[in-house]
């Protein structure tokens, strides 16, 4: 017996396939291709010059700096939160679980504004910060804060789901066998969640690199100082420097494709962990 869908008329199958491919091409392949066509529109030399411009280099550096601080922080926090929520019972557990999701529920622009309200010149801590010469808003610390806030839930959420499905049996077994808390964590818990953890880190990294809204609010767009890669794309574009804008955008696109491949691989690996 053939499979049921094989009975559909040839014309139906072909139409559906073509429609699906056309949608894919129109909404995903075409824009991605356009980015690279535009980026190299003025030739390889122009592309290289744009990327090596001091302002672009400084945007890359700032993006990487924000990444280098926010991702490890969120990884540590995510691990701690997931460990606490899934392996222990305590008062306020549900509140913590809900709080972790807030950055997903709030528009990034609002998140940025919150930081301006708290740390900005007119904000709660603004006068104190100005007095002590510790600028947060329109400076690098603000960008790192905004990036960290927006990417906060990725690792924690991924790990909470994974660790909940794994339960606490193995930790209890380790404890009865005489393991202390560190041994329990590093020899039992961590190896069991390593692929899920990496998956969360990759998602967090991708989002941290691409974050626009929240960072845009707190950045002040000072070129060479508080511009991240996505903000730099916007500035170049607004100045009608299309080749430049797309050249920088192509960097982000390449990173996105790498992320996607990593994500697929880790999804496959962490589904083994769950089993």
């Amino acid at each position: 017996m053939s499979k049921p869908h094989a009975k559909d008329p040839v014309i139906v199958r072909w139409t559906l396939t073509v429609l699906a491919l056309a949608a894919l091409g129109l909404f995903i392949v075409l824009p991605l291709a356009a980015v690279f066509v535009q980026a190299f529109g003025k030739g390889w030399q122009a592309y290289r010059d744009t990327i090596l411009q001091p302002e672009t280099v400084s945007a890359i550096e700032l993006s990487l700096l924000a990444l280098a601080i926010s991702v490890p922080m969120n990884t540590l926090f995510g691990l701690a939160a997931a460990w606490a929520i899934t392996k222990f019972q305590f008062i306020g557990k549900n509140v913590l679980t809900t709080l972790i999701d807030i950055p997903f529920g709030v528009s990034p622009v609002i998140s940025g504004l919150v930081f301006v309200l708290v740390f900005g010149a007119q904000g709660w801590f603004g006068p104190w910060l100005t007095e002590h010469d510790l600028p947060v808003i329109f400076a690098v610390p603000g960008i790192i804060l905004a990036t960290t806030f927006v990417t906060f839930p990725f690792v924690a959420r991924e790990l909470i789901a994974l660790m909940e499905s794994q339960g606490t049996d193995e930790e209890e077994a380790a404890m009865v066998l005489g393991a202390n808390s560190w041994q329990m964590f590093f020899r039992v818990t961590l190896p069991n969640i390593k692929w899920g953890l990496l998956y969360g880190v990759v998602l967090c990294t991708a989002r941290a690199l691409g974050e626009f809204g929240a960072v845009s609010v707190v950045s002040g767009h000072i070129r060479g100082q508080t511009n991240t890669l996505p903000l730099h794309v916007e500035i170049l574009y607004n100045e009608y420097n299309y080749a430049g804008a797309f050249a920088v955008a192509s960097l982000l696109s390449v990173l996105a494709v790498i992320t996607l491949a990593l994500k697929k691989f880790l999804e496959w690996k962490s589904s083994e962990e769950r089993g």
Binding site: D169, E170, E172, A173, A174, M175, V176, G178, A179, N180, R187, V188, N192
Partner: peptide, 15 residues
């Protein structure tokens, strides 16, 4: 940790 008991879990809880 300190009681030195051997415990066999219902679903084995092997690592």
């Amino acid at each position: 940790r300190d009681r030195q008991v051997g415990f066999v879990f219902q679903h084995y809880a092997l690592f």
